[in-house]
Computed example of a mutant assay.
Amino acid sequence: MAKDSTAHPTSGTPTNLPERLDLLYEEAGQPRFGLPPVLATAYGGDLGFTLPCVYANFVASIDGVVALGPEYPSSGSAISGREPADRFVMGLLRACADAVLIGAGTLRATPRHRWTPDHVCPQAAPAFGELRRSLRRATQPQLVVVTASGNVPTEHPALQSGALVATTADGARRLEGRLPEACTILTAAEASALRMADVLAALRSHGHTAVLTEGGPQLIGHLLGEGLLNELFLTTSPVLAGRAGTSRPGLIAGLELLPKQPAWMGLISARRRDSYLFLRYRLRLSDARVGLRSAVAI
């Protein structure tokens, strides 16, 4: 699922970053932000996005599992094995973002997480800060939680630190007086369900043009259904998860694509660290709008 760690930020000069990722392939002509040297060295090159952009980051087992089920909180860490290179890439992608978009289910499934770059890779915090300053980003990306119902764990530390909570008018009424003072309710719909297009339009009105989503599978399904996902970063972890009596979803839930409406993606880059693969895809323009999903009910 969306990746998780319980690391905490520290300060000082970046040390103990993972060894340089091996660049296996990269499509020519990609946009480049001009990463600070320490980040470019660890990543194995530069990174950038054509804005506006909505990009996702997930880790999956070899057999396609991204979440181990509701009885396993923070299962992304189990799937990744807390691989340092994976945590570095997760932090780097957050450091590039104006906002990190998650669903209420992801918030509930990771009770101690904070969706900041230095939470997952504290040793790179100074370089992440340098990158954000060069991009004229805020100190930390804005956390955005999507919930149609208003059912969120208001005691979650990420909410205590401040977040935008995108919800319906009904959800806003349920949340009134319950959220920490640092949070802001973003009422993106008057109906009982949310359209992700409305949520993203509201974020762009706040100046958020680089939006990273870390899931979960339902939210990715909604974004794809409305044709709003531009890119996907997928770490393939060298582990087999298996499936038996519990639900163990893949990357997308709540949306069927094959065989009638496949969403083909083009490979932009491939990197490797030991037996881990770090893949970057772009949704092909001809498949940019699937059109099977119109609203979110989370």
Rank of each mutant, 00 (worst) to 15 (best):
S149H: 11
L21S: 07
E71H: 13
H113I: 05
Q261M: 04
P18G: 08
R132I: 08
A124N: 09
A270I: 13
I252C: 05
A197T: 12
C53W: 04
D98Q: 14
P249H: 08
P249R: 05
T13F: 08
H119Y: 12
C96R: 10
V54H: 09
R248C: 10
T10K: 11
R82W: 14
L51P: 05
F128K: 02
A188S: 06
Q160S: 00
L23Y: 02
A85K: 06
R243W: 04
D287G: 11
I220G: 00
L223A: 10
A78F: 10
T10P: 01
A109L: 05
L92C: 09
T10R: 14
L285E: 15
C53F: 05
V296T: 04
N57S: 05
S5Q: 08
A163K: 03
V120S: 06
P217F: 02
L203S: 08
L267C: 15
A109G: 06
S80P: 03
L200C: 04
E71F: 01
H222M: 06
D22F: 12
T246H: 14
A189T: 01
I102A: 11
L224T: 05
D4Y: 15
T236F: 12
L47M: 03
P122S: 13
L240T: 09
R271T: 13
G150F: 10
L179F: 00
Q140I: 10
Q142A: 13
